[in-house]
Design a protein around this nucleic acid. Structure first.
Length: 750
DNA sequence: GTGGGAGACATTTTT
DNA sequence: TGTCTCCCAC
């Protein structure tokens, strides 16, 4: 078998060890995905295991799709019937098949996203008159309890933590549970917990699945929580063939209930476990791996292993400290442009950050420099208001008990149903234990409603009923959505041509495209299937192979690799994040995250920070991240330099245009012109202390310029003003490019 | 019931 | 900075 020939002895041993519990401790870049796919192929090819009796759990949908693709190329189309998915998708599949065996639920349940969840909690808090209760905390308590499978009653006793509001949180949790049940809805945590309950409580269900899956595989095992682990134990209880792969050093989901002890103590739970260690890294250069090992050494809780590689030494890892976040981003742009000119493609680059909020300066600078990019993490497409609103209509058609969806769109688009009317409707529903939709069906019975409100509610009900009829008869999902848009006059909200409305209309269009795409790929899929896939999709799943720079949080790129990686925002309070200061375990998770970030890089690695940032509406000085300090010897940075944290100092220093904390100046070139880079510092700082920014009035359409890289060109268009002046310039043989006049290395000729 | 303006407040990471 | 909530005028 040629797929076995490509494995090293340690990998091969893991692949061939098919029977019983197996734990593979696989360092970053040690080929764990290859081991997983080779093993599954081996089971099918050599052991003649039927593909539908193999289960593989991955961490993202993207990873699942990729694994399926690889397996199709190894074993052919039989890979289609294999269960390869995230644990959440697997649970949905089980629940869609037998949720009706759980008391009070049905197979056409809705999955509530984080946004839905938040709305429900907000409403509960205000109903209970707990006005001051923070929604975020309530969310945390509920999730925390569910991740450990603790009911509200038990949480009241076991979860007590001395918080004076604790009893209120328990009450909110309890009402939340009832509310979701009444709505025939599951949140993300429920998908796992309720599937677990189902497997525990119904012997038929358990024996069906536990018998079905002869071989179970779990990737990224270090990030499973206790309920997920329970499901794995139950599913493997008949055949006992459970194969888990993970790396305790890459456990970065502790905040979501992931238990690092699941992997550290796996062999205690499964007594006959055979352990394999993969310690050879195939991904990164020696210099990059050296940094990774240096960082992770500082953690105390870990199983001892040291990654090594046969790869070449590679390029020196660069460190850059910018004056402000825009300069940090400019540095990244310059590096990318430079490397692209030397043969790299845009898709070889990733800009990784601890928090989503940092992505903005990269969006701006990349746009300015014409660098194609995609931002992952942060606001998801399907969580945008206009998209959530459309899907809410679809949700009602599938599950009329979905109160959250009904409340969401009862007055969207505006149809004159105000808060007062909605409140009356809700309390009527509540008093008879009806769903909101049920209450709508007997509008005439509701007391205290103005005649106008009554007729508007009826109108809304008629609208939904006619859509329900349509959903039963319409030919395709696409037709149905178009009908929804027409019948509800949905687009009328965005008629006026404001910038915002134009973008909303575009989003709706994009949404229709996504539906069409989905229908094409899954011809037999139902509306339920579409809605669950939308809710469960993460945006990294949307990553494709076209040529763009990836801008993402570190969490989002777990499991991926890039030739060149920028780890940006290396400031205290950003990375490590400010809240991590309290506990050692939190700080160690931050450090593991840094380890994950470093080990994404194959060939080149850049670490950057900014000495001041715009945060919370004001500019603040920052302090260099401790992680840079932990690496300073390896990076060749002088140690023990007193740390500055005063913004005043930074402004003063900017006039000296010293771009670096301490790295040698020669490591950077900016589009071939250091002076233009320095110029941008002075002018920006000027703008900030209130002096008039230098203007670029002499740059007008028709005038000619000379650019350091593209040569002579002609200005076509000028946009913006002052420091934000952007020029579109045509170059012979190059085409039209956009530049910021404040930064671009060029001079006016005419 | 709607819409605009003032003021408060926020940023961890995601299936 | 940008989003959300509250309050007031229509």
């Amino acid at each position: 078998m040629n797929y076995l020939d490509n494995l090293n002895p340690a990998q091969k041993a893991a692949v061939l060890d098919t029977e019983g519990p197996v734990l593979v401790l696989a360092g970053a870049g040690s080929g764990k995905t290859r081991v997983l796919t080779s093993r599954i192929a081996y089971l099918i090819d050599e052991k003649h295991v039927s593909p539908d009796r193999i289960l593989a759990i991955t961490f993202t949908n993207k990873a699942a799709n990729e694994m399926r693709e690889r397996l199709i190329s190894l074993v052919g189309d039989s890979a289609y019937v294999m269960w390869i998915s995230t644990i959440h998708s697997m649970c949905v599949r089980i629940l869609r098949a037998c949720a009706d065996k759980l008391d009070g639920y049905d197979k056409n349940f809705t999955i509530y996203s984080e946004v839905d969840k938040e709305h429900v909690i907000k409403r509960i808090i205000s109903d209970l008159k707990y006005e001051d209760l923070p929604v975020k905390e309530a969310k945390y308590h509920i999730s925390n309890a569910k991740n450990k499978d603790i009911s509200p009653d038990r949480y009241a006793i076991e979860g007590a933590n001395g918080d004076r509001n604790f009893d209120k949180y328990v009450k909110v949790y309890s009402v939340y549970e009832q509310t979701l049940k009444k709505s025939n809805a599951f949140d993300f945590d429920d998908l796992i917990v309720k599937a677990l309950h189902l497997l525990r409580s119904d012997e038929d269900v358990l024996s069906y699945y536990a018998d079905k899956f002869l071989y179970i595989h779990i990737d990224e095992f270090q990030d499973t929580n206790s309920t997920q682990y329970e499901i794995a134990k139950l599913l493997s209880s008949v055949h006992n063939n459970i194969f888990v792969v993970g790396d305790d050093d890459q456990s970065v989901y502790g905040w979501r209930g992931a238990e690092i002890k699941n992997i550290l103590h796996f062999d205690k739970d499964f007594r006959t476990t055979k352990v394999h260690k993969l310690e050879q890294n195939y991904r990164s250069t020696k210099k990059i791996l050296d940094l990774a090992n240096t960082i992770i050494k500082n953690n105390s809780v870990r199983s001892k292993k040291v990654l090594w590689t046969d790869n070449p030494d590679g390029e020196k890892v660069e460190y850059f400290s910018g004056e402000e976040e825009s300069n940090e981003a400019e540095y990244v742009c310059a590096r990318i442009k430079n490397l692209v000119a030397r043969g790299y493609e845009y898709k070889d680059f990733a800009v990784l950050m601890r928090i989503n909020a940092l992505s903005r300066s990269y969006e701006q600078e990349f746009t300015k420099y014409g660098i194609p990019f995609k931002v992952f993490g942060g606001f998801k497409f399907f969580e945008r208001k206009e998209i959530k609103d459309i899907t809410a209509y679809l949700r009602i058609l599938v599950n009329p008990l979905d109160d959250e969806a009904v409340i969401r769109i009862i007055n969207t688009p505006k149809r004159g149903i105000g808060d007062k009317t909605i409140e009356t409707l809700l309390s009527y529903a509540q008093s008879y234990n009806f769903s909101v939709f049920d209450a709508l069906c007997e509008v005439d019975m509701i007391p205290d409603l103005a005649p106008s409100a009554r007729s508007r509610l009826k109108e809304f009900r008629t609208c939904i009923s006619s859509l329900t009829m349509l959903s039963a008869t319409s030919e395709s999902l696409t037709d149905l959505i178009n009908e929804v848009l027409v019948k509800t006059a949905f687009m009328s909200q965005f008629e006026i041509d404001t910038e915002e409305n134009v973008s909303k209309r575009m989003n709706v269009d994009e949404f229709r495209n996504s539906v069409e795409e989905f229908v094409k790929l899954n011809p037999s899929a139902t509306l339920e299937d579409y809605l669950s896939s939308v809710t469960l999709s993460s945006d990294i799943d949307e990553a494709d192979s076209s040529d763009y720079v990836t801008v993402a949080t570190i969490h989002a790129v777990k499991g991926l690799e890039f030739k060149c990686v920028f780890i940006v925002g290396l400031d205290e309070k950003i990375f490590p994040v400010s809240r991590a200061n309290n506990e050692l375990s939190e700080m160690e998770e931050e450090r593991r995250l840094m380890y994950v970030a470093i080990t994404r890089a194959q060939e080149r690695l850049y670490l950057t920070r900014a000495r001041s940032r715009y945060l919370y509406g004001e500019r603040q000085g920052t302090v260099q991240s401790r992680f840079v300090k932990e690496l300073s010897e390896k990076l060749g940075l002088p140690d023990d330099r007193p740390q500055r944290n005063s913004y005043e100092n930074d402004v003063y220093r900017s006039y000296r245009s010293n771009d670096y904390d301490s790295a040698p100046r020669s490591t950077v070139s900016f589009g071939g012109s250091v002076s233009s880079f320095a110029k941008s510092y002075t002018s920006r700082s000027n703008a900030k202390v209130g002096k008039a920014p230098s203007s670029f009035e002499a740059y007008k359409p028709g005038k000619r310029v000379r650019h350091a890289k593209f040569g002579v060109g002609t200005i076509i268009q000028i946009k913006g003003s002052g420091q934000n002046t952007i020029a579109d310039i045509a170059f012979k043989g190059v085409g039209v490019k956009s530049f910021s006049l404040a930064i671009a290395p060029m001079e006016l000729l005419d």
